[in-house]
Amino acid sequence: MSTLAFIIEDDQDLSTIFADALESVGYQVEQIKDGLIAQQRLKEEVPYLILLDMHLPHISGADLLTKIKADERFKATTVILTTADARMAEAYEPMADFVMVKPISFVQLRDLTARLKPR
């Protein structure tokens, strides 16, 4: 089974750290920094896991989340929402599979994604 993971995050450093965490447990990671590109890539690929930031240029994380959840193709995809805003986290909690409030611990993210990995 594919272990493709999209890290949709506009901050380069966080993106790198998340990528490191996921790669360390064996995911194949693609980093995307723009909402528009993410939308395009999601048309082409169905990743196993999506790490989605709420604040993105061009298309917001919330919009992407709505689209992903409405699309049958992503039925098996796990979405982890990342945000610095605790209130926003609360609002989108029912839609996402997991919500992580920044600052996100490297260890926490690594352990969580390790558990979610296909066996």
Binding site: D11, D13, L14, I17, F18, D20, S24, A84, D85, K102, P103, I104, S105, F106, V107, R110
Partner: peptide, 22 residues
């Protein structure tokens, strides 16, 4: 506060990568 948290998150993440000896 929000703007401060982003770089701090990065610092924390990198430091953790070190401690985890990745």
């Amino acid at each position: 506060s929000h703007e401060l948290r982003t770089p701090l998150s990065a610092i924390l993440g990198y430091a953790e990568i070190f401690t985890e000896q990745i």
